[in-house]
Amino acid sequence: MDFKIVLFVFACVIGTTLGEGLRCYACGFSSVDSDRDCLTITNDTRTVECPHLYCTILRQEFLDPVGQVASFARGCESQPDFLNHEVTDSTFRTFYRACTTDLCNIGNGIQSVTGGNLSPTPEYNGINLLVPGTGDAANIKISLVMLLLSIFVINII
């Protein structure tokens, strides 16, 4: 009987550790803010447990004056608008960056981030990449492991 309890606890632990999320830096800045700490990662930069697939950076610069940051955000998303891309309109140049490893959203937002091999080189040309195998694969794996372990435990009882 004790073996069944130990096996059940083991199954629960395995299920929860498989579901551990991504850690990302999370902060924001707007041109009207005086606190520009989000633009540079420090020991005090806030981190979050991200339940999604991507750590992200969104950097928006004014075209006039050139290079002045209008807004900047670090965070996590399930499906970013773009992985590593730049968009320019009549007012702004916007950099979208995404990566898939812990605390990978560290850059200034201008250079492409490469965590998780989303972009092959730092000189990546900005075209979106389709990344096979992403989505809810981790949740499917957790569910499958829990189902198999439950069946195993039921058969032992």
Rank of each mutant, 00 (worst) to 15 (best):
I5P: 00
I5K: 12
V6Y: 04
F8R: 10
F10R: 02
F10L: 15
F10E: 12
F10V: 14
C12H: 02
C12Y: 08
C12F: 14
G15C: 07
G15H: 05
L18H: 06
E20H: 12
G21M: 03
G21W: 07
G21D: 02
L22N: 00
L22G: 01
R23V: 12
R23S: 10
A26W: 06
A26C: 08
C27N: 01
S30V: 11
S31Q: 04
D33C: 06
S34Y: 13
D37K: 07
D37M: 07
L39R: 05
T40Y: 10
N43E: 03
N43Y: 08
D44P: 03
T47M: 09
V48C: 04
V48W: 01
P51S: 13
Y54M: 03
Y54Q: 00
L63F: 03
D64G: 04
D64H: 14
D64R: 14
P65L: 06
V66H: 13
G67E: 13
G67M: 10
A70T: 00
S71N: 06
F72S: 02
F72P: 02
A73F: 06
R74C: 01
G75V: 04
G75D: 06
C76K: 09
E77V: 05
E77K: 08
E77G: 03
S78Y: 13
Q79W: 09
D81P: 07
F82E: 14
F82D: 12
N84G: 05
N84V: 01
N84A: 09
H85K: 06
E86V: 14
E86W: 07
S90Q: 11
S90E: 12
T91W: 03
F95H: 09
F95E: 04
C99I: 02
C99R: 00
C99K: 05
D102R: 03
D102T: 08
C104V: 04
C104Q: 07
N105D: 04
N105V: 05
G107M: 06
N108W: 00
G109S: 00
Q111L: 13
Q111N: 12
T114K: 05
G116T: 01
G116W: 00
S119D: 10
P120L: 09
P122L: 06
I127G: 08
N128L: 15
N128M: 14
N128V: 11
L129N: 13
V131E: 04
G133T: 04
D136I: 08
A138Y: 07
A138S: 06
N139F: 14
I142T: 02
V145T: 12
V145C: 11
L147Q: 07
L147P: 03
L147A: 12
L147D: 04
L147V: 11
L148V: 08
L149M: 15
S150R: 09
N155G: 15
